[in-house]
Amino acid sequence: MGGVNVRELTGRNNPLAEGHRMCPGCGAPTALRQAFMGIDDPVVVVGATGCLEVSTTVYPYSSWRVPFMHVAFENAGAAVSGVAAAHKAMGRRGLFRDGIKFVAFGGDGGTYDIGLQSLSGALERGHDFTYICYNNQGYMNTGAQRSGATPRSASSTTSPAGRLIPGKLQRAKNLTEIAAAHDIPYVAQTTLHDPSDLIKKVRRAVETPGPAFVNILVPCALFWKIDPADQVKICRLAADSRFWPIYEVANGERRISYTPKKPVPVEDFLRAQGRYSHLFTDEANRRDLIDQAQADVDAEWEKLTGNAKPQS
């Protein structure tokens, strides 16, 4: 796997230990597990409220092999700021180890929506930390409600597809670009299509001094209504259809990390998931919304590639 020696990584203990209670086939623990594979230094993790936080810290057990703190839902950015500042201050007094890396994570609820202010503040202040958003495009911890990351036409429990309204009416906000607009040193977007891409991006994020943000699209089998075993296949469709562009913004420069040779229609990505099934029933036949989805993808890609250097 390009540039990453996975065989070497098998000898290490992952900061995310076994015994967590995430659903079988959930993309979030895979994303975080892969993310930590690339980090060599000691790490302290801060989590926003969400599935991953709850399921890894069911008292009296913790799945964190490294120090971990969860404060609340909307404030992982501020919480990690405090931890990083404490490390700096006490490091000057010779307390605790040097070179600790700080990683905060949140789902799209804790990142795109309720935690955006806290994240923005932390990015603006320039603390040395990496924020990982495991983005399953909705509020899964409370049962598949729509979020600011939910794409148009997806049926969620607060944007259900009904006779009158065909799922969510609005597009997802582009948080990766919002993070990049803070002019921080490193921003990246990826999914579970290629572990080496994810591992390398998080490694770079963590090794870059200052704040970094990595937005990882992960499937939720329950919300997306997919077979859990199809996790990787669905993520490849997201990348190959350009529904989820794989790219990074390093020091302000956008670079596409993966350009599908022959992009697959976004319809293939939608059709593979139950949350879009209302678009494909005989009686509904929402070709207009499928076309709209393609138009959304094409417009985003054009905007992105207009700003980006092609893969070198």
Partner: peptide, 28 residues
């Protein structure tokens, strides 16, 4: 002073950062 002074963007973040720092072992 030798303090790390975090000029946060809200009171919610102020107390959150204080909690993070205090749990870390710092005097806050």
């Amino acid at each position: 002073v030798d303090t790390e002074y975090i000029t946060v963007e809200s009171e919610h973040s102020a107390i959150t950062a204080c909690v993070g720092a205090s749990v870390s072992g710092a005097r806050v």
